[in-house]
Design a protein around this nucleic acid. Structure first.
Lengths: 218, 218
DNA sequence: AAATATATTTAGACAAGACTAAAAAAGTTA
DNA sequence: TAACTTTTTTAGTCTTGTCTAAATATATTT
């Protein structure tokens, strides 16, 4: 249907659209894709011809409904494969992204349906990110950054903002994982670091760390 | 490492090499790949530059050791994915080929090791074809075509020669599957059709069918 | 508003992989 | 061996996706 490259552009635009109120800029896409602005312009014209984006010269782009639907389908595949790699093949959560980048382009609706079933219809991937439904809707969860919680509050770890390998390895080392219960014991005014309880152990973490961890509070 | 296209050519040459004593002809490859002879010539030059094939103008090609190793690795991936699709995702054996054609190009040694382990190190794929080891060696099994067995002989179905969807569906319909025990009851001289026992039922099959079914006899 | 800086697009090029049409080599037949 | 047929290669073109360099549009300063 669409080439790997086209799919990657759609995915990039989809992610960038959440942060910009306006259309997504050519340069932003170029940076995200590690490519040149001129290449982006070329591709935007192609995507516009295929009715996947609304493109006006010099004004940036937005995804059309068709574009959004397609992007969601790719993200769905990516995240389902990540669940598979972690749950079934025993990968750790920092190893799966690159492989899922390849697997997300495999074309077979039946395959994804069967994979979804095999994994028992997961709603969130190993990093806590929502897996869109077949129809393209994202499951919501009221989550809050650990850095924004008050002393005494507690919650369950449901996601990370930064998914870099180094951050995920840090979490592993400190026994922080999805599903773990966390309570804020103390807040250090000076540098906004936190003293928290994870399971039965208590540790101190910097504000940087706390700003990249999502907890479910209710 | 190598492009999808290069990998597909290597695979095609590998399969064709088993039937021709000489080098594989350009036309044979073109037919196998559903492409034109001129495209094949172009690619053979590229593969020769990369030391994957021995190519002499007008003389056809053979794979180098490096080429054989690479081809075996791709076949290994293809067949492991086929096992996964059938065993874990509940596909039937006639549905898996096209999807495995895509999955075989995913690049990650670790992925294949973990998949192999997850599947409990299978030695044969759902069609009974051998899965090469990481080192590129193919497990052997002494198998014989059903059409070459004598009345009274029996064996266990271990593979098919024709893997077309229509043939596999025919087998399903007649309850013939890998692992099933088959005994030759009667041989019809006139058209070489057979009367056989499959499990507890007995059926008649044409010589065409019998010439595409492998049994393990020992 | 003019000058400058930044962002974006255009023009032209390249590599991979495919194709068509024509030329050349190899194989076959008379 | 000459004539014909088939196979293979060459030459030139096309598409996709990328790039650099140059041109143009937009944004920011002064």
């Amino acid at each position: 249907m669409y080439s790997d490259s086209e799919e990657n552009y759609l995915k990039a635009i989809f992610h960038l659209e959440r942060f910009s109120k306006e259309g997504v800029s050519t340069n932003a896409i170029a940076e995200q894709m590690h490519t040149k602005a001129s290449s982006v312009t070329d591709m935007l014209k192609k995507l516009a011809d295929k009715k996947l984006v609304n493109y006006v010269k010099y004004q940036g782009v937005t995804l059309t409904n068709q574009g959004k639907k397609t992007a969601a389908a790719i993200i769905r595949k990516h995240r389902l494969w990540e669940v598979f790699l972690v749950e079934k093949l025993d990968f750790s959560w920092d190893e799966v992204h690159e492989i899922a980048e390849q697997l997300e382009h495999i074309e077979s609706d039946l395959l994804i349906e069967k994979l979804d079933k095999h994994l028992d219809f997961p709603k969130f991937d190993p990093h806590g990110d929502p897996i869109p439904s077949k129809e393209g809707t994202f499951p919501q969860r009221n989550k809050v950054l650990l850095s924004e919680m008050n002393v005494g509050d507690s919650g369950v770890c449901v996601g990370v903002k930064d998914t870099s390998s180094s951050f995920l390895k840090f979490l592993d080392k400190n026994k922080i994982a999805l599903g773990k219960s966390i309570t804020v014991i103390e807040h250090e005014e000076f540098d906004d670091s936190l003293h928290i309880k994870v399971g039965n152990e208590s540790i101190r973490i910097s504000n940087i760390i706390a700003s990249n961890l999502y907890l479910k509070t209710n």
